[in-house]
Design a protein around this nucleic acid. Sequence first.
DNA 1: TTGAAAGCGCTAACAT
DNA 2: ATGTTAGCGCTTTCAA
Lengths: 344, 344
Amino acid sequence: MATQKEVAKLAGVSFITVSRVVNNEGNVKEETRKRVEEAIRQLGYFPSHAGKALNSGRNGTIGVMTPARFGDGMENSYLMGVLRGIELECRERGQDILLSPMSEEDPAFDFLRPYRQRKVDGMIYVGLKQMPEQMRREFADRLIPCVVVGDRPSYEHFSWIDTDNERAGYESTVKIWEAGHRVIAFHGLVPELYNANISDRERGFRRAIQDLSGKPVDESLVLRADYSREDVQRSIVAAWPALKNKPTALFCSTDNRVLSALAAFSELGLECPADVSLVGFDGFLRDMVYDRSMATNEQPLTAMGRKAASVLISHIEEPQLPREEIVFPVVFTPGDSLKKIGGK
Amino acid sequence: MATQKEVAKLAGVSFITVSRVVNNEGNVKEETRKRVEEAIRQLGYFPSHAGKALNSGRNGTIGVMTPARFGDGMENSYLMGVLRGIELECRERGQDILLSPMSEEDPAFDFLRPYRQRKVDGMIYVGLKQMPEQMRREFADRLIPCVVVGDRPSYEHFSWIDTDNERAGYESTVKIWEAGHRVIAFHGLVPELYNANISDRERGFRRAIQDLSGKPVDESLVLRADYSREDVQRSIVAAWPALKNKPTALFCSTDNRVLSALAAFSELGLECPADVSLVGFDGFLRDMVYDRSMATNEQPLTAMGRKAASVLISHIEEPQLPREEIVFPVVFTPGDSLKKIGGK
DNA sequence: TTGAAAGCGCTAACAT
DNA sequence: ATGTTAGCGCTTTCAA
């Protein structure tokens, strides 16, 4: 592969002139420039990143830390949405993306390696879990440029991008209420499996019910299960028939739960939306219910990814910039699965 | 960030000794090594990638070319599966992954830039489309290490990893036949939208029908549509009632088509699997039909990605190795949507 | 066992 | 407008 030096020789100039031409620095006679450009073309010269990086300290690459098991399930859609946004921004800003999946099993796994090796100038964390304490401290101590997506680390060091799940939980509940439903159930996560987003959605639901009905939530209307299809389905089949105050709508904390709920209701002989309305969250499975559309909530993942990259790159370029905390709104998407009822 | 030189100063040796310790080169007195290691720890020294890369010409990074629109739909699952495999292999082999989404809109987009800049040592193409001719030529001309996933470029330069879609199409059809079905329809792609994988599945179907029935396929049993949910659904609703030789099974070239078919049959008042059996392809939507499981075919995406990375890395390390052409088997996954019928 | 020197490709600073 | 020098962090080669 051709180097500056070879180009210089062919063009009959010194290598620094080549550098000037490549970087459009001016101070090169038109005719010389032409000659150099011709030599560049002939040799197929392309500036080497390594040389530049070595002396500028910059890599033009940002690292993206992702969950290790990113091949599985829903994480796919979330991650890919964010990644797409990161990619769009990076393309415009001339940055590359180094994928850096974390390892949860390996305790010796060094998530910061790409940065320590100076392969990347900064990192975006799309971990889907809270960042481990030790990791946060290290970022802060070493002043490593970093943006967190989907969480709100309280450390002063981090900029973060998140959505307002509490508010979305609130507003979805209002939407359901406005459709005429007065007994509304919620399906969330068992306490052992804490997830900030999902619990925020539940908090929003609770606040809305309080505001709308003037009374706190009837606890029997809050169902729970782990992430598995079967468990969710079982939880509904088990609890639903016993409810004296029969709900006309079930607000599910994820789209996945909507699918499980459909299975459960089908098992119970109930129809959606004729007998029960359903509202989901995420939008990944919006089109997966083949015979009706799903009312759900969507996070603007691509915009979030874009913003994350944009903030990170700005901070790399100007480290003294103040950190940013950005909350994106969740968008409610109507669908057949939420039926208007009652005279209201 | 600490450099070799600083470590050397602290340890009271020359920087070359540090290099020796870092690279475990031996020829270092035990005591000196201890001292150097201590200095490394104290300063938090980590070898800089740029210096090493400049010097060795190696980057320890491989580029993955993906579809530009990788955030959308099914490409997600395919890509993520392959990516996960690539990641697993790369982790073991100490390589990093540079994500390099292509741009279809921008004609000036330089897919080879990461390689030209020597940011990566080689590339994996997971394009979901055939690689453009000009691109192939450039890879071949410049002897750029490259592995293609999901296609079989006939160029001598490329190693590739693919699945045997023709055979899977054949064997799925046999499975359906063995379940007692004698009139089997197929749902594929309109000719304008050629896709090698999908057309291979159709070829397999045709060969199987010929072998099993002794007659070529009844062309009225081959339905077609583009990729959209609506078009697929319409195509079935329009064609099905007119079929005199009513099929008891529909083999869909993708899982997506199975969902559309379910909607279509529901519109036609037909039940699956009571009235029509369905078999899909890909497995991405296996669990998306909430009230029954889907019979489908799965490609071992992670294994494919792993192999792709493994072959690429081997070729980077030993360029004289012969290229490899690897066909992975598709795995048929039974499900409720395929009913056993007849007395056979 | 250790070190000195040169060079990888590039740019910044300083000549000319 | 063009060139020279030095140095980014590292490894390789040769010398001590």
